[in-house]
Design a protein around this nucleic acid. Structure first.
Length: 284
DNA sequence: ACAGGATCCTGGGGGC
DNA sequence: TGCCCCCAGGATCCTG
């Protein structure tokens, strides 16, 4: 559930808390995450100081002073935060970096779809992302990039947006919100959408993500930022989770279908399957 | 080559 | 109130 805006929020919240912190101990749980934490990595990290924290797609990247890196993925239910002193023994804590000053950075993840990975060099980090075929950041992506990606696939728009090799960081919620904003039906075959339609998608993607970041992401179920504060974008959802509720533009009921194995919400009036009347959806 | 389905995992919610 | 079942979906692996 943490998608780009939520991960960005976590990173921004954590930055003042972790930069310049020195790692004194590393603790891991015996449950394995999506990728197994290698015990040697813990030793490598001892004495390292965190130089920076940033986001790449849905990944959190810690940069350490010996030019090694630690990546975190929050999966569905992962939370990354800093606690003071005493081990509160919170359940589902899988990776803990105890700092010299007694505070600690913890990855908690009940569903264990998340992971933590150590990469010893810049080169290794680069190769790791290359191996994932991780696509461009939405804000760095030109509209030509999205046009090209759309032209070369017969998949539907929803599946294309969810594909991390096309654009990094988009998940189920922001895919649906972006498609609504662009007034494109999620089931449209990507290579059959007009260049103008793809450009609308490109603009909408940035607009939706930018606004979601401003509002600190969405707190549905239990997402909290790195400082424990909630996001507010869930109050702005146009379609996600609104099956049967009136569209905020035209008041037609929002529909839900299954696409790319995911619940997909859209307005059948504002996002018509054909592009005939896309300029004037009926008011009703 | 490409698209879609199954899989992993737990907590929460609906139905009875 | 309690229990069961299903659902949520990010990434990866498998099948058609």
């Amino acid at each position: 559930m943490p998608e780009l805006p939520e991960v960005e929020t976590v990173v921004r919240d954590l930055r003042p808390l972790v930069v310049a912190a020195k790692i004194a101990r590393v603790r891991t749980s015996r449950h394995s995450l999506r990728r197994r934490w290698n015990r040697r990595w813990s030793r490598m990290l001892l004495g390292c100081t965190i130089r920076g924290i940033r986001r790449r797609g849905k990944w959190v990247v810690l940069d350490l002073d010996d030019s090694s890196h630690v990546l975190f993925h929050l999966g569905m239910s992962g939370r990354l935060n800093v606690r003071d002193g005493k081990d509160s023994g919170e359940p589902h804590t899988h990776v803990t970096f105890v700092f010299e000053d007694g505070r600690s950075l913890r990855l908690r993840d009940p569903r264990r779809f998340g992971c933590a990975v150590y990469l010893a060099t810049d080169e290794a980090l680069h190769r790791f992302f290359q191996g994932l075929y991780l696509g461009p950041e939405p804000f760095d992506m030109g509209r030509g990039d999205l046009r090209a990606a759309a032209a070369r696939t017969r998949r539907n728009l929803k599946a294309m947006l969810l594909d991390q090799s096309v654009v990094a960081g988009v998940g189920n919620i922001y895919a649906d919100e972006t498609l609504f904003e662009a007034r494109l039906h999620p089931a449209l075959q990507a290579n059959r959408v007009s260049p103008q339609g793809i450009d609308r998608l490109h603009r909408s993607l940035k607009r939706v993500l930018r606004q979601a970041i401003e509002l600190r992401g969405s707190s549905i179920r239990d997402f909290l930022g790195g400082n424990g504060h909630k996001g507010n974008y869930q109050d702005n959802f146009r379609v996600y989770g609104r099956e049967g509720l009136p569209c905020r533009r035209c008041s037609q009921p929002i529909q839900r279908i299954r696409l790319a194995g995911r619940s997909t919400f859209f307005c059948p009036n504002c996002q018509p399957r054909s592009s005939h009347n896309r300029n004037e959806p009926n008011e009703s």
